[in-house]
Design a protein around this nucleic acid. Structure first.
Lengths: 92, 92
DNA sequence: GAGGTATTTTGAAATTTATCTAAATACTAA
DNA sequence: TTAGTATTTAGATAAATTTCAAAATACCTC
């Protein structure tokens, strides 16, 4: 459904993206990191999938999630062109 | 309250920011641009103010809103450092 | 097939958000 | 001070979102 803003509006979903930066994780591993039910995390993952911010790959029993960095960076690009280029910070 | 993500989650609020890029506008001018009541727009403006994304200045009868580009760009900076630097596009 | 683990889906409750109308505030001008 | 314009606040309702427990799906192993 491609609602990136909506997907990014929830703090749990943003944390999920952050943890996927380091490495791919299974739904169970992601779920274990938050104090909510796995049904809830599954729902958050669905929203992230629909926004194309993550991809999932079914393995034996588990489903492994990966960050779709490309989509995220395209989103950042659009934002930064829409709202003025990001300044070159050159401290030192 | 500084909830930038929350403030940016709503499409009307994002449009308000976009229209303030061109030039400052009064609450009434902003309100006139959307098919919702001015009370609703006033509420959206409050959320944008609390997120520090806009500033307001009371003039005679009107209140003029301005985009706080600095806060927006800091937000972009944080995002882009968190999720990998934005590529240097150098098409010609 | 029976049981076990991993994950998603369903359906419902709770919370939050967006919206409206009406009332309140503030200022101007006659 | 009365009337008018601009904006916000209050209170209520509607719609969307988050969450949970329980059921469903899928796959693996005995």
């Amino acid at each position: 459904m491609k609602d990136i803003w909506g997907a990014l509006a929830d703090p749990i979903r943003r944390e999920i993206l952050t943890m996927l930066q380091k490495e791919d994780k299974t739904a169970g591993e992601i779920s274990a990191a938050f104090p909510v039910s796995n049904a809830t995390i599954s729902h958050h993952l669905k929203i992230l999938r629909e926004a194309d911010l993550v991809t999932s790959k079914k393995e034996k029993q588990t489903i492994t999630y990966s960050l779709n960095l490309t989509v995220f960076q395209e989103f950042l690009m659009q934002l930064s062109t829409a709202f003025g280029r990001i300044e070159q910070e050159e401290q030192s």
